[in-house]
Each structure stands twice: as C-alpha cells, then as structure tokens.
Amino acid sequence: MTRTLYMFGSAAPPVFDVARVIEDAQGRGWDVCLGLTPTAADWLEESLPGLEGLTGHPVRSRYKRPGEPDVWPPADAILVAPATFNTVNAWALGLTDRFVVGVVAEGIGKGIPIVAMPCVNAAYVQHRAFERSVAELRAMGVTMLYGEGGFIPNQPGQGRPGEYPWHLALAAADRVAGD
C-alpha cells in the first residue's frame, strides 16, 4: 500500500536537492506531493515541470480557489524541510497567509503526523522567538528535528547544504507514519 507524504520546502539552499529527496522517499514507498513557499518555488521555477513529472502531482505554492477540486490525495504524513526561520515562526504563530504554513497549521488540528527540520544559521537562533516557536510546535505534537539528532545550525555564511541531514527527515517521516 502506498502512503502519501506531503513534502514542503522553504527557500533555503537544501531545497535544491528536493528531486533526489523525492526519489529517496519514493524508494521508501511514499507517494510524494511537493509544496513550496513562494520564494522556494521561484528558486526552482525551471525545475517545476520535472518535479511534477517526478511526483505525478502538481507542485503547489499557493492556495486553491474556493470550489476548485483538491489535486492531491490526503496526506498520511507531512515533512517540512528545509524549514526557514520565517516558516517556523509563522507556523508557530498560526500566520497562514502562505499555502505551506496553512496546510501544516491545519495538519496539526487534523492529527496528521508532521516532521519538521529547520535550516537556519546560528545568528537566527539567537532570536528568542525561534526557540519559543520550536518549543510551541513540539508542544503541539510536531516532531522537530532540531539540535542533537537533527539539524544543527551553521555559522552565518558557512552553510553546507550538501550536509543537510535529509536522511534523518525521511527516517522520521517513516517513524511518525507508523512504518
């Protein structure tokens, strides 16, 4: 039986590896639906047709209009990675003007298992709102892969997108979905 994974990415350099990660997820038995923040969709604009072909679903970055049919099957789990400073804080505050944040905020209420892995630098995490947001999302049942056993921030300007621990995110998605 195929399970459906909503994979949501924000505009951080690891998002450029999303095709490889989708293939890895598919190899684990997931039917992947890709959602992107507007900036991430802009970054990947030239790749969007190929990503739609890879997933077999439209890549979404905007809400559908009222009355339009839903083009994705229901999610068995949601993975939010890379999750930027903005995405984590907006989500924790319930600011749902962006499609990705709206779906994950609603996903909490629907009881969909959710995994999130930030991608932020060490300067951003000094802002007190970030730690509060991580704690708030954890308290709402989100599996936050941040700190030991997850994403550990780099110094500003020292990003290493090739070292982003995607394997931890996919393993956690498997776990929360009961696999």
Results as ranks from 00 to 15, higher is better:
74 P>H: 09
129 A>Q: 03
125 V>A: 04
63 Y>V: 06
57 H>C: 04
68 E>H: 13
94 G>Y: 03
75 A>G: 10
92 A>R: 10
74 P>V: 12
85 F>N: 09
126 Q>H: 08
116 A>N: 03
108 I>H: 06
90 A>P: 01
94 G>K: 04
100 V>C: 11
51 L>P: 15
55 T>A: 01
57 H>W: 01
41 A>F: 09
91 W>P: 09
121 N>F: 10
49 P>A: 10
85 F>T: 11
56 G>K: 01
107 G>F: 00
87 T>A: 06
112 I>F: 00
120 V>R: 08
129 A>E: 06
71 V>H: 11
52 E>Q: 15
51 L>M: 07
84 T>A: 03
112 I>Q: 04
75 A>I: 09
48 L>P: 12
118 P>G: 01
108 I>A: 02
120 V>K: 11
89 N>D: 11
70 D>W: 02
110 K>G: 06
84 T>F: 03
101 V>N: 09
106 E>K: 10
107 G>A: 00
55 T>D: 02
64 K>R: 15
47 S>C: 07
65 R>M: 10
128 R>D: 05
112 I>D: 00
126 Q>M: 08
118 P>L: 00
80 V>L: 06
54 L>M: 01
120 V>F: 11
51 L>A: 07
58 P>L: 00
121 N>W: 07
125 V>W: 04
47 S>E: 08
42 D>T: 14
129 A>I: 15
112 I>W: 04
100 V>D: 12
111 G>K: 02
122 A>W: 06
65 R>P: 08
69 P>T: 08
56 G>Y: 04
60 R>L: 15
64 K>W: 14
109 G>F: 02
79 L>A: 14
43 W>I: 08
111 G>W: 00
129 A>W: 08
114 I>S: 06
48 L>E: 12
53 G>T: 12
91 W>T: 13
62 R>H: 10
101 V>D: 07
112 I>Y: 00
124 Y>E: 09
113 P>A: 03
80 V>G: 06
107 G>S: 03
57 H>Q: 04
84 T>L: 06
55 T>N: 00
53 G>Q: 09
115 V>L: 04
129 A>N: 12
126 Q>Y: 02
62 R>W: 03
108 I>C: 05
105 A>I: 06
